[in-house]
Design a protein around this nucleic acid. Sequence first.
DNA 1: CTGCATCCCCTCAGATACTG
DNA 2: CAGTATCTGAGGGGATGCAG
Lengths: 229, 229
Amino acid sequence: MVRGVKRRDYAQYCGIARALELVGERWALLVVRDLTVRPRRYTDLQEGLRGIPTNVLSTRLKELEQAGIVERRVAPAPRRGVVYTLTEVGRALEPALIALGRWGSSQLGEPQPGYVASPDGAVLNLRGAFQPSEAAGLTASWELRLGDTVIHARLADGALTSGLGPVEDGADLVITARFEEGEPPAYRSFVKAAREGRVDLDGPRELFDTFLRVFTYPQACERDLPTPR
Amino acid sequence: MVRGVKRRDYAQYCGIARALELVGERWALLVVRDLTVRPRRYTDLQEGLRGIPTNVLSTRLKELEQAGIVERRVAPAPRRGVVYTLTEVGRALEPALIALGRWGSSQLGEPQPGYVASPDGAVLNLRGAFQPSEAAGLTASWELRLGDTVIHARLADGALTSGLGPVEDGADLVITARFEEGEPPAYRSFVKAAREGRVDLDGPRELFDTFLRVFTYPQACERDLPTPR
DNA sequence: CTGCATCCCCTCAGATACTG
DNA sequence: CAGTATCTGAGGGGATGCAG
């Protein structure tokens, strides 16, 4: 073992290797994903990341805090407790998350039984599906309803803001997905439903076509999930 | 354990989670990084990823091939052997690699003793440093010499092509870094040398300033910088 | 309740030796 | 050159305990 090199380091002076050292551990980027959308408490994260062992979540949060990516704060009077947020450094990971989500979405097969979908994941996948070139100059707002999950997307002269919850002062178009049995409330499922016409619209129909152009991409590289060995 | 969910899966119907299932294992994205720049043999990869255990490299390559990211081919007559390349799906990971590298570069400290730098990593980090807005409409070519590593970058009306080796029919400007003792031939070290004037130029000086504008981003702890000759 | 810490178990990574 | 075989230990998965 060379001096100055911790065992789990890659020992490469490279941005990609450094990124993987900091957020390459298991579950780490999913923690960042959820915190990118909104601040969360420990138990919120446990729910959004269903299946994460409590000791792993605890360890990741400490490591991410140590790395200056996550901030741990004690919440004020009503609903006291601990709230985790991203630092500026942590928020700077969003482009990487979006790029990974863009690629991974193209590699999603059919939802497996037992698969879940977190609202935070849906927001990030929406942002990954966004096609700026199709949105140039547009101004409009949409409200997407994926089961209990409500997402807003607003274009102001082609610039996107998006997040959880409804659009303030009403969306131009509300799109409610009619999910089938067992279909998780993921963004990908929402797009599938929209393409197949399994949606209810409240607003001008042409804005629905605009939505499909601006917030989806051709699912060229589709493939099935590998069969368990 | 729920049916249909392998133990190491995240069991989330989310593009980011899917990406991490496919390329989130240790060393996996670094293998893809090296293959993004050029096809490589097994031993090439071992050298570029110094420190990777041979059984892990072997396992990762099989997994990546299984996932349709990497292709294994037997090379033709001269220099027979096995050559690994990326598939279309694998090449589609480049934006994610670049985004991760951009972020990770901002988190790189001083090079630790024992750290190495692969030529392939330098190319990807160059692409991550590229600022399209600063390059709009520009046409020019640079050759960067980082020790034994030679990188070319060519702008054609603002569009970048880059890779290893010199520019065909000569670069407009050749920039040779004068590295200090122990400084690894990484892109970040090259930028540092350039900013501190530790470079030799062969070509018009104004193209050097253009290079700094187009291929670097502000890094922490910037100070007044001496001008190179 | 929330926010962890501790336990055991087992998988996978690290290191090294060896082979078609 | 392109891996396989084997051993060991770190770290993740899962259940449980417990303090504020």
